[in-house]
């Protein structure tokens, strides 16, 4: 069974942070169409600060713990605790592992999803990050003999979930104010969540042994 080493894989989180920072304006722009317009600003602030504190030799588990700490102690709002719990629970699942295989990768994502659900109340279809995250976890748990293929399935499921939010009416959060008018725009949380999962899967795939 193929796997990737936990040690040194903290760079995956730095790469994800770079993508989030790069998309600061885009995430704020789509958020601004139906929400406050500050999603990109807050996400870039949190992920950018965390990236500066993740050393070259950090493990994936350590890097996730650092990111979680920044999100929960410095960002606030709703995204701080939601993504903070996501990365905290994932980091605790893998902290003692030398290598991460398909089963532990799926268990890690499941723990992250449970962490989000422990503080938030959104369900699939509410036009939130859950629309990207829940199908991604399902794809991971569906499994595949080839881990590279599995990782591709997870990232694609997240992106399909993100795209599904375009035709949804927001049921939770500030954008629910707009009712029908929230249709036709991607949800900013689902969009950032798909970026994160894409980065996680691509980073893992690039590090797979054999």
């Amino acid at each position: 069974m193929s796997s990737f080493a936990n040690a040194g894989a903290g760079a995956i989180i730095r790469d994800i942070a770079a993508v989030i920072v790069e998309n600061r304006a885009y995430l704020s722009e789509i958020d601004g169409k139906i929400g406050d317009g500050d999603h990109g600003v807050n996400m870039a602030k949190g992920f950018g600060r965390a990236a500066e504190r993740i050393g070259d030799d950090a493990s994936l588990g350590e890097a996730m713990a650092t990111l979680s700490d920044v999100l929960m102690s410095e960002i606030g709002g709703s995204m701080g605790p939601l993504y903070g719990m996501f990365f905290l629970e994932m980091s605790e699942t893998i902290e003692d592992l030398g290598a991460i295989d398909a089963d532990t990768f799926a268990a890690m994502l499941r723990a992250g999803l449970d962490g989000v659900a422990s503080v938030g109340s959104a369900k699939v279809g509410d036009k939130t990050m859950m629309d990207a995250l829940v199908p991604a976890v399902a794809a991971a748990e569906a499994g595949h003999p080839d881990m590279a293929v599995l990782l591709r399935h997870v990232a694609e499921a997240a992106e399909a979930g993100r795209d599904s939010t375009e035709d949804m009416v927001a049921k939770i959060g500030r954008s629910s104010r707009l009712g029908e008018r929230s249709r036709g725009v991607l949800d900013a949380g689902a969009t950032s969540c798909a970026m994160i999962l894409r980065g996680l899967c691509d980073g893992a795939a690039a590090r797979l042994d054999a």
Partner: peptide, 12 residues
């Protein structure tokens, strides 16, 4: 104290 119209952090 949180950001404008945004909850304070759990740490705060």
């Amino acid at each position: 104290v949180g950001e404008l119209f945004s909850s304070p952090t759990a740490k705060s």
